[in-house]
């Protein structure tokens, strides 16, 4: 794929109302709408970005955070290159649910080697007044540290804080992770076969 634009699939997950759609809108069209609706199902949009002189197309998948839409969103985790786990800094429950989101993602994305998958954690709505804030940066960082040292970004879709940075960081992380995977195992058919088999085994359990 040298010389060609690489398509990267990025999935944004997180509880309903944490601001996933708002983050995507801010990133893609640099807009914010305070009157947004809950997302139903899944939608995606593409955005081209250049990192270190290489161009990439980010295929950003916005999902419905509400529990009742689980069956609609999970089929589209497969083939993801990166996952943004999002919570609202003003919503402690959404922070607690990150565990569930990560687990759900790894299961449906059919990712075997969860440790080497690039997750980026976003604490959104940092623009809220301090008194409404329920999750501190330290709490969040602690969780990230415990979860594969995922990078953590405090963002605001409303005020356009850290949004582009977070997405760029996600891509960089992904590239780094890929490199690491390449170095660790190389891609030989043997490995692929092994992987296939292990997946099948898993299914039969």
């Amino acid at each position: 794929m040298a010389g060609k634009t690489q398509l990267l699939k990025v999935v944004i997950l997180g509880d309903g109302g944490v601001g996933k759609s708002s983050l995507m809108n801010r990133f893609i069209s640099n807009k914010f709408d305070s009157q947004s609706f809950h997302t139903i199902g899944v939608e995606f949009l593409n955005k081209d970005i250049v990192i270190d002189g290489h161009s990439y197309t980010l295929q950003i998948w916005d999902t419905a955070g509400q529990e009742r839409f689980k069956s609609l969103r999970t089929p589209f985790y497969r083939g993801s290159d990166c996952c943004l786990l999002t919570f609202g800094v003003d919503d402690v429950q959404s922070f607690h649910n990150l565990n569930m989101w990560k687990k759900e993602f790894l299961y449906y994305a059919d990712v075997k080697d969860g440790d080497s998958f690039p997750f980026v954690v976003l604490g959104n709505k940092v623009d809220v007044p301090p008194e409404e804030r329920q999750v501190t940066a330290d709490e969040a960082k602690l969780w990230c540290e415990a979860n594969g040292r995922s990078p953590y970004y405090e963002t605001s879709a409303k005020d356009a804080i850290n949004v582009d940075e977070a997405f760029t960081a996600a891509v960089k992380l992904l590239l780094k992770m890929e490199e690491r995977v390449e170095m660790r195992s190389g891609y030989t058919d043997t490995v692929n076969l092994h992987k296939n088999r292990s997946r099948k085994d898993h299914c039969q359990c």
């Binding site: 069209s29 139903i40 199902g41 899944v42 995606f44 998948w61 916005d62 609609l72």
Partner: peptide, 16 residues
């Protein structure tokens, strides 16, 4: 290319 593309799986009932 500016509008989001909605995705679903065949056979699933639609909620939107």
């Amino acid at each position: 290319t500016q509008q989001p593309t909605r995705a679903r799986v065949a056979g699933q009932s639609v909620r939107w």
